[in-house]
Nucleic acid binder design. Sequence first.
DNA 1: CTGAAAGCGCTTACAG
DNA 2: CTGAAAGCGCTTACAG
Lengths: 336, 336
Amino acid sequence: MVTIYDLAKATGFSAPTISKALNGNGKLNPKTREKILNAAKEAGYTPNMAAKSLSTKHSKLIGVILEDVAMLRGFEHPLFGGLLNRFRHEIEMAGFDLLFLSKNFNDGMSYIDHCKYRDVEGIIVVNPIDDDPEIQTLGSCGIPCVSTNEFIPGICTVVSENEEAGHIAARKFFECGHRKIGFLGAPMRENSPAAIERLRGFRDELKLCGMEFEDKYLEICDAWFDKSGYEGMKRLYERCPDITGVFVVCDSLAFGAMKYLAEMGLKIPEQISLIGFDDDTTAVSAAPILTTFRQDRDRIASLSAEMLLQVMAGIPVPHIVRVPTQFIDRSSVKII
Amino acid sequence: MVTIYDLAKATGFSAPTISKALNGNGKLNPKTREKILNAAKEAGYTPNMAAKSLSTKHSKLIGVILEDVAMLRGFEHPLFGGLLNRFRHEIEMAGFDLLFLSKNFNDGMSYIDHCKYRDVEGIIVVNPIDDDPEIQTLGSCGIPCVSTNEFIPGICTVVSENEEAGHIAARKFFECGHRKIGFLGAPMRENSPAAIERLRGFRDELKLCGMEFEDKYLEICDAWFDKSGYEGMKRLYERCPDITGVFVVCDSLAFGAMKYLAEMGLKIPEQISLIGFDDDTTAVSAAPILTTFRQDRDRIASLSAEMLLQVMAGIPVPHIVRVPTQFIDRSSVKII
DNA sequence: CTGAAAGCGCTTACAG
DNA sequence: CTGAAAGCGCTTACAG
């Protein structure tokens, strides 16, 4: 391993001068800088981040909260995987590495201890465990944070225009002549905007259309899995066989619902119309007909990175940043 | 931030003694240890990894090579996402954090420089860029490595029993009465076992069945995307409309193929039979009929972690570790 | 069993 | 513009 002392010896300058040349800060004779930079290149010098981190208190590490327990799916989550690719790219361009925060160390190290352990400079909350009390304290732990999707006190959240999407879905059904429209939802937690906001927009738009959304048309699935969608659709359909359309809060659930409908011999959209949410790419060609909303992963990710970097720089950011969704009108809504 | 010096002051012992107590190495009076541990807990002490890393040369960091350029899909890759969840868990239980190796720093820092920069102790190669010359040098860079899927000189690879799966697929088609069977493959690179081995097993088994696999039944898609599968299937079917079954080298391609077949009005399995590979979970309920092979992500991941930890400990490991696949016989192969 | 000294590789004031 | 000194928080021999 080549150190700045090796470079000092090789060039005849002192360690602090080497440091200055390498980091480009402070006044320095251009020739000196050039000599040092050349020597560094020649020697194949790579700085040691542990030493740097120790003396500067800057680890150049961004903590990521991404859990994979039970319903969460960690890296496998269709939305968050894509989001992380882009976030990682942005953050690396800014000279940071990702560090996945975990409670698996020792006897369950907390996120915040993990951050202290690694001197993490900022945190992005992607996929937290439901009702984890520690998440609620993140806003006041002193480490800059940004959240995608989940609302957390004192933290900027970057999230899709869910309510607007709900409006669009309801309007679409209404304009296509549907009057008995179900909503297949997922567990609604106060801090998790997705399901609540989509339902709210949906409800409000129906009202604007002069309809009243009846509670019997609302069915909540017990999780965000295909299987839950299958079961939820079963309950909804058995209770309300008169429905002609269903807005499903996400594609995974919609796929489960489609499976149930297929088993019942109900054709989409001939006998029942469907709108999903997420446009899960893997499944697109397997279920090419589903009308859905595409969340702008790239924009959510790059805005999250931007907001986080700003918070880290002490620049104020809005409490909520909204990102439009894209309505993808395939062929799963029938005009009746 | 609480340091060992704070604990030294609080307990009256010296820094080295605090260190010993905290790390549990060396002889120490049990009472001393207990006092120190209590003081540490009371003060909310968290060790500083940068300092630890600097003095021990152990960063407790495992580098991950996971790229998301073009055809690779980074975190979104259906197989590698699941694999990483489990790998991460295993590695964290062993006290390590994941550090994603990247070429995005500065003017394109190499993987190895990134490792030096962070003192990475071991590397797992998940999803490297095709023909990246640096990958080939990993075996001799001095850092312990393990690869999943890709063969790399001097590095242990943990990989599915692809050839056996090829045998099973061929045998299945043969026993169901198929005699004109296509193979829809993906780009074959020497170091990437997936496509090559599946084809080899498939070919060999047909031979064992007394058939000869004809080249015209082989079609190579240009990538691992749905779209490539669509186009590949189109070429294959237009050339050989007499085929009754196709072994598709992965599910993404199979989904694309299914889309093409659906557009052509060809029913599966009534008019054409299909076997896929991977059992992509997201899409299962959207395409519930596809007979396929499930790769044992969990086993691949935990074995990779185990092998890597062994290499890091200087324990010899096999050059290749094989993991059985599971044949999932749904209903996409017709008996004729 | 415990501690004084030195070192890991780098940077930050402060002199000159 | 350049360098000597001290420090970041921890650990490793080595004494005692």
